[in-house]
């Protein structure tokens, strides 16, 4: 694989009080790749994603985006936390889609997408509206551009949230269990949008329990267990040749999907 490394995590640690949630995470995401994080509840997947865009501050280790440390700079041998303005600028290069959509409730679908374009990227209203229209079209919601979040279904809200993130033209998109809060019949429309994004070459770091999807779109799968990377590799390796009992057990829970679904 010749693609350059976009995101590199090395020895990332994070504790909440006495509870150590991340115990030294190493991970790489190459340009244009989809990397999926799987693992049991509480294994630290969400915490890791949140560290990547500084919604949480990691305690130790490095998270490098395009080689640049996220959240701090080196001053000689000392780490100095970046100013909020600098952190905000870094976050603008990383998109995030949340489990609970988190659309701004006072803005229409179109305005949700436009806000970052005008305020963060400094685009004109007209240009932002055009970009918003483009991406809302891509997620199949051009006709709903004037709707407020409460007027949209969960699946539609999540697609707007994806449009909002991708419209910022980020280097990397983070997805944290974005279909978990959806009614089963709405899951497919969101996964469809994500798959199309992946195929368009977007670099994505995805936490998901949708194992068929993970297997289908990922270049690389990372199994997290109790704050560590227990196994990682190509989907076929991880799913077909799990090298630990814990991964076997974890995958066993989805067994019905693999054998029954087809």
């Amino acid at each position: 694989m010749a693609e350059q490394i976009l995101l590199r995590a090395e020895g990332v640690r994070k504790s909440f009080g006495a509870l150590e949630v991340l115990k030294g995470i190493d991970l790489e995401v190459r340009q244009g790749q989809v990397v999926s994080l799987i693992g049991a509840s509480g294994s630290g997947k969400t915490t890791f994603l949140r560290c990547v865009n500084m919604l949480e501050e990691h305690d130790a280790g490095d998270i490098l985006l395009d080689g640049e440390p996220i959240g701090y700079r080196m001053d000689g041998s000392r780490r100095r936390r970046l100013s909020e303005a600098k952190v905000s600028a870094q976050r603008a290069r990383i998109g995030m889609v949340f489990q609970s959509f988190n659309l701004f409730p006072h803005l229409t679908a179109e305005e949700n997408v436009m806000l970052g374009l005008t305020k963060v990227l400094g685009k004109s209203k007209a240009e932002a509206r055009e970009i918003a229209g483009h991406w809302l079209g891509k997620v199949g919601l051009e006709a709903r551009r004037g709707h407020y979040p409460y007027q949209l279904s969960g699946g539609q809200q999540q697609r707007v949230a994806i449009a909002r993130a991708v419209a910022m033209d980020p280097r990397l998109l983070l997805f944290d269990e974005v279909t978990s809060a959806l009614d089963p019949e709405l899951v497919a429309e969101v996964l469809g949008v994500m798959k199309a994004l992946a195929e368009s070459g977007m670099t994505m770091l995805v936490v998901s329990h949708e194992m068929l999807f993970v297997r289908d779109v990922s270049h690389h799968v990372v199994f997290m267990d109790e704050g560590k990377v227990a196994q990682s590799g190509a989907p076929s390796e991880v799913f077909d040749r799990p090298d630990s009992e814990r991964l076997q057990k974890f995958l066993g829970r989805f067994h019905g999907i693999f054998s029954g679904g087809g």
């Binding site: 500084m54 905000s88 976050r91 609970s100 701004f104 006072h106 970052g116 305020k119 993130a165």
Partner: peptide
């Protein structure tokens, strides 16, 4: 979550207040 979504698109602290927190609070 609204503040986190505002952070995630790169809004600065005062922008988060001005464009997200205050309008929601006003309503």
């Amino acid at each position: 979550q609204y503040v986190e979504a505002a952070k995630a698109i790169g809004l600065r602290p005062w922008q988060r207040q001005r464009w997200v927190v205050l309008p929601v609070m006003f309503r």
